[in-house]
Design a protein around this nucleic acid. Structure first.
Lengths: 255, 255
DNA sequence: CAAACCATCCCATAACGTGGGAAGATCTAT
DNA sequence: ATAGATCTTCCCACGTTATGGGATGGTTTG
């Protein structure tokens, strides 16, 4: 089937406008369309509240209807969709499960995962929640909280899950600093004996932490000897790609 | 000029989808368009990343390109545009200046105003900032902060601007409670001798406070004898209309 | 003050979107 | 399991509808 021409053109124009507001002839040049065509499309879009302009002026910008539509999308849903292909890629290169989590109070909530191809694999945690201090995604979330919020967290009871679970506020603070600096965290058998895992943060377009990407596997094979750093790089890189897919611009200079 | 048919139809479909994701025949029914037409438009929109669907399924929902476009709009800009007609209306009915402000740290930042038609009028504060405790918009912002944030605010030095300025933490706490309950605040000559003002909050689509609407005038005529409540109602009503224009749904039931 | 630029409007032309309908896919009820 | 109901996808002849050249008038620039 063929894409309807006028719609394709309308969205070409919209994309230009969203990059930076512009007038008819600017848009005619940037899209390569005749001015009369651009004028007609702009007229239509304006009538439909898709774009707007200052009363007299003829500089068009994105209008209310776009914002309204966008506000109807569930951020979690969006994270999942945007991340899907990247998750797949990560699972393929690592050979281990990879998934996504979002913060929910003092817990980490698992929202999606792609399982490892290995016959020996970790169960899928999707839909469940775990305390922040026992999983790397949680440490990553804490690392992006203001200090007083972290202190409040450290004051509430911190359960021990395995012999390795770190529950000392001092050690957790240290670990948070390290997470901030490195951009990832490894946790070894702190939630469950025999499971190691790593996580890196995913940012939304405003630069705040929307969720975390993690990968985990049985400790006998994950991470493979001396591969901690290589894996960390891959995970961070994948997390960055997801952030970018969500509109996050790295090294953003706030205006 | 005439609105381009396919574009009009495409956005009719998009609006339906943003209300709730749907398939071809649902949309055909809700828009009154032939299924083949809907199918073609959906195909086009999907190719352009305006809508998306789960791999196999055919339930369409709003896609990345819409969200990306929307994320490019400056919330303050949007507030100003959406509020414009409502501000005008308020100035007309009250006969006094009305404007908008947003929170900025412990200050209130004035972003726009429409002046009173009176020859005797207050200067336009657009672009300037004032401490929260001396203007009603500021009290309104404080009223929507969590208690511990308010306490932190009250601990920092609170300057006196006029003989009437309330700087006692106790009195400000009281005033905040009243603001929460009533949904508006009057302040009488607390920022400057001879100026009275009132403010009400404006919410965004998530229900958080985006800014505040205020109106002010010379104290010798504003508010007119016994009109405090009537004016308050008008201001609150206008603020609500602006909130709704921004996608805020009153009495929202979170799902 | 002229030249360059821009938004808007008009209209003849045919390209393009349209929608009926068929075929295939999927779901539902018994 | 099976038939019917319902849905999505595909095709194609038709003519409605989008198109773009160009003219007009307004605005900015040098």
């Amino acid at each position: 089937m063929k894409v309807v021409q006028s719609i394709e053109r309308a969205f070409a124009i919209l994309n230009e406008i969203s990059k930076s507001p512009a007038g008819i002839s600017d848009l005619s040049r940037s899209t390569g369309l005749p001015t009369s065509t651009v004028a007609r499309l702009l007229y239509s879009l304006e009538k439909l509240d898709v774009i707007e302009r200052e009363d007299g002026k003829s500089i068009y910008r994105i209008g209310t209807s776009i914002v309204t539509m966008a506000s109807s999308v569930n951020p979690t849903q969006r994270l999942l969709t945007a991340a899907q292909p990247h998750l797949r890629g990560l699972v393929e290169t690592l050979g281990e499960a990879a998934g996504l989590a979002i913060p929910a109070g003092y817990d980490v909530h698992y929202i999606g995962e792609i399982d490892s191809p290995h016959p020996v694999q970790i169960r899928d945690w999707t839909g469940t929640s775990l305390p922040m201090h026992i999983v790397p995604s949680g440490i990553m979330f804490l690392a992006h909280w203001p200090d007083d919020a972290v202190e409040a967290f450290l004051k509430h009871p911190l359960d021990r899950f395995t012999a390795q679970t770190v529950i000392s506020p001092l050690a957790i603070r240290q670990r948070i600093l390290e997470a901030r600096e490195k951009g990832y965290v490894w946790l070894f058998e702190e939630f469950s004996e025999g499971i190691n895992s790593i996580a890196a943060p995913v940012f939304n377009h405003t630069g705040s932490v929307l969720g975390a990407l993690h990968s985990h596997g049985p400790s006998y094979r994950f991470p493979a000897e001396g591969m901690e750093d290589v894996i960390a790089q891959r995970v961070m890189q994948t997390a960055s790609s997801i952030s970018e897919a969500l509109g996050f611009v790295p090294n953003q200079i706030s205006k």
